[in-house]
Design a protein around this nucleic acid. Structure first.
Length: 655
RNA sequence: GGGCUCUUAGCUCAGUUGGUUCAGAGCACCUGCCUUACAAGCAGGGGGUCGAAGGUUCGAAUCCUUCAGGGCCCA
């Protein structure tokens, strides 16, 4: 009944004879054209498509192209209207059955076939949706969008993090369509349009009924209109049509554009939201900001990822796959859950939720607490500060400052998970595994006051870095360190300031750490318990500073470090750069095994040397690469050559 | 269909302007330790030709092209 043409594919030879002809719609006896369009799939069904522009989106497009009549056969409740003829007033599903019966009775029905096709349904009610033409209000977007487009892509007044969303933003804004702002819902803000007649243009737009009446009298020319003659549009505004004002309206800036709050707070700094509403909300807020205040609404937009389950499904109520947040907090602690999720939540990337992430967060919290317990348990005395402790403190201070620079850099780029990972490693590896082991007094021995005060201070600095990520634990520990007034709470303390980093001490420590690892590896390989003290001899080709020896001895349980001029016989060996280290052992050393080990190291280093040499002998590399890169390669070359010399010597000394 | 995006260790993922923070992290795995803060731990270790094929470059996980396979959005 709503059909206004039959469409065939012009290439379809079966229907060549029908071109340019007309057809009669059964039951209503309407004459409709037979049109041709390649849109029709010849393989599907009969190859003849009936076109219903009023009730199908594709048919609507086809109808516009071929200038077809649009016949709306439905009432608003999906019962048939007068175009439904004798079915008028009946429900669509009832009519569907009755029509097929009538067609059959009158001999119009030739064949019935089953087809599977996609039918849109309401998400809430599951009702089958019938497309139907209606009048809607639109907001003209093109001019509005221009400043918002420039703000993100040209002037950078508004920055998106991560940057990749700028491409998506551009595509949307450059192809922007007018915004349909009317919704057929019973809740929301009613559209302030008032109709005074049946004509398409018989309306006025006004803030109040009184104003509308005045306007309507003027527009209609009827001075005797009353408010009873006016009918406000029943549609309400799209929910985003109020949301796009959010940055302004939270400060009352729409009704009172000059008020103190909005003058002070607008524009804000950061908006944190999900990438799925980049268009709906973020882009439109930027548009409204420039439109109503001539200024960006915010400076930065940080897009979080979506939390998904292990099967990559979105968390949803219907799937019931959302974790119970309170249960998680109970199991892993609020800070543990937070850290676990943040560690793997890079901006704009989805996060596969897994409880093991929270477990990691909880373990970290536990680590911090235990570190605090250790320090808090020490007895303090007025003792001279051991050399190792002094060095350890100096080194960690440098390390802390270096990491702080790193963290500031991450924060400045909104790389939140990277910032957290830097802190995680600083606290777990550098502070707990290295520093605390360096300064730890012997069992049941007191610690000197200088070191204690220094380590407490450093621990407090750690807590400051941790606080944004673990607010509860850190504040708790902070209050345990000493009595604090509310003004001295961690929450309101000063964030550490960046200072110049002592790079030399970091380099020196790294060398020492390599030596420590070397000794530990030997202990491990030869099953030498930590309790058994060792002695270490060094062939100091590198002329490495001896100042770290106290630290090395403490961390490896080495009694003495001897500096020797010739290789030590009957010893286990390892090398750091071109330095060779010897651990003399009672009993037989497996010389063959040592030789194999050294030969392997030699082979690897020679291969490495070759690759560096090749690079440096390439003229184009030397001519084109930056000075700094070449210098690095030269250093690699020198280091490798020195190491090879050492290895060859020790191989020779083993016979 | 259009646009965007992703593919890196067994798993989940970082990797910023091409070059020493470049092949990484956590988990998992293997080995040894109940060492005196922490076994929810410590110390070692194995594991990836960075989706495939081309190209640009002195140099590519990184830039370009094509292909394959995922994901997101489409008012």
């Amino acid at each position: 009944m709503g059909d206004s043409a039959i469409c065939i594919n012009p290439k379809d030879e079966r229907f060549t004879h029908l071109k340019g002809k007309k057809a009669i719609v059964p039951l209503c006896d309407r004459v409709i054209p037979i049109i041709e369009d390649t849109y029709v799939d010849m393989e599907f069904g009969t190859g003849c498509l009936k076109v219903t522009p009023a009730h199908d989106i594709n048919d609507k497009a086809l109808g516009e192209k071929h200038n077809l009549e649009i016949i709306d056969i439905f009432n608003e409740d999906a019962s048939l209207n007068s175009f439904g003829l004798h079915y008028q007033g009946k429900d669509r599903f009832v009519v569907r059955k009755e029509i097929s019966k009538e067609l059959e009775e009158k001999g119009f029905l030739i064949k019935t076939e089953q087809h599977i096709n996609k039918v849109g349904t309401s998400e809430r009610t599951k009702a089958v949706i019938e497309p139907r033409l209606s009048d809607q209000w639109f907001l003209k977007m093109e001019d509005l969008a221009k400043p918002a487009l420039d703000a993100v892509l040209k002037t950078n007044e508004v920055k998106l993090f991560p940057k990749k969303f700028e491409n998506t933003y551009r595509h949307w804004m450059e192809n922007i369509r007018d915004w349909n702002i009317s919704r057929q819902l019973w809740w929301g803000q009613q559209i302030p349009a008032f109709y005074f007649g049946d004509g398409h243009e018989d309306f006025v737009v006004a803030e109040t009924m009184e104003e509308a009446l005045e306007l309507a009298k003027f527009k209609s020319g009827k001075a005797d209109l009353t408010s009873a003659d006016l009918r406000q549009d029943a549609d309400v505004l799209d929910t985003w049509f109020s949301s796009w004002l959010w940055p302004i309206s939270v400060f009352g800036g729409i009704l009172e554009p000059e008020n103190e709050e909005i003058q002070y707070y607008y524009p804000t700094n950061d908006l944190v939201t999900g990438p799925d509403i980049l268009f709906f909300w973020v882009a439109r807020m930027i548009v409204s900001g420039y439109e109503y205040r001539d200024e960006r609404p915010f400076e930065n937009v940080y897009f979080t990822g979506l939390v998904r389950d292990k099967q990559r499904r979105k968390m949803s109520k219907s799937l019931g796959n959302s974790p119970d947040a309170l249960k998680l907090i109970e199991d892993y602690g609020a800070d543990g859950v937070r850290v676990g999720l943040l560690l793997s939540a890079a901006a704009g990337n989805d996060l596969m939720f897994d409880e093991s992430l929270c477990q990691q967060g909880k373990n970290f919290a536990n680590k911090i607490w235990n570190g605090f317990r250790l320090v808090k348990g020490w007895e303090i005395e007025d003792l001279p500060q051991p050399e190792a402790s002094k060095l350890g403190i100096e080194w960690y201070t440098a390390k802390f400052n270096a990491t702080l620079l790193e963290i500031e850099d991450h924060f400045s780029k909104y790389r939140i998970s990277d910032a957290l990972m830097s802190i995680y490693k600083l606290v777990w590896d550098d502070y707990s595994s290295w520093l605390l082991e360096i300064i730890k007094p012997a069992y049941q021995k007191p610690i000197d006051k200088t070191t204690f005060n220094a380590v407490i201070n450093l621990f407090e600095q750690n807590l400051k870095l941790l606080h944004p990520f673990m607010p509860f634990l850190t504040e708790e520990v902070w209050q345990h360190i000493t009595e604090r007034t509310p003004e001295e709470a961690l929450m309101v303390s000063q964030w550490p300031k960046t200072v110049t980093v002592n790079e030399d001490i970091l380099t020196g420590f790294n060398f020492a750490a390599d030596i420590v690892a070397g000794v530990r590896t030997i202990r491990k390989e030869k099953n030498i318990p930590m309790k058994e003290a060792l002695s270490l001899s060094v062939l100091n080709t590198e002329k490495a500073s001896k100042e770290w020896d106290t630290v090395i001895r403490k961390l490896t349980n080495v009694d003495t470090i001897d500096y020797v001029d010739v290789a030590v016989d009957g010893a286990l060996t390892f090398r750091v750069k071109s330095n060779e280290y010897f651990i003399p052992m009672e009993g037989a050393i497996d010389i063959e095994a040592e030789k194999i080990k050294i030969a392997e190291e030699l082979k690897y280093t020679k291969g490495f040397l070759m690759s560096v040499q090749k690079k440096l002998s390439n003229e184009r590399f030397v001519n084109n690469a930056p000075e700094q890169v070449i210098a690095i390669e030269r250093k690699k070359l020198a280091d490798a050559e020195a190491k090879i010399e050492t290895l060859e010597k020790s191989l020779a000394s083993l016979g």
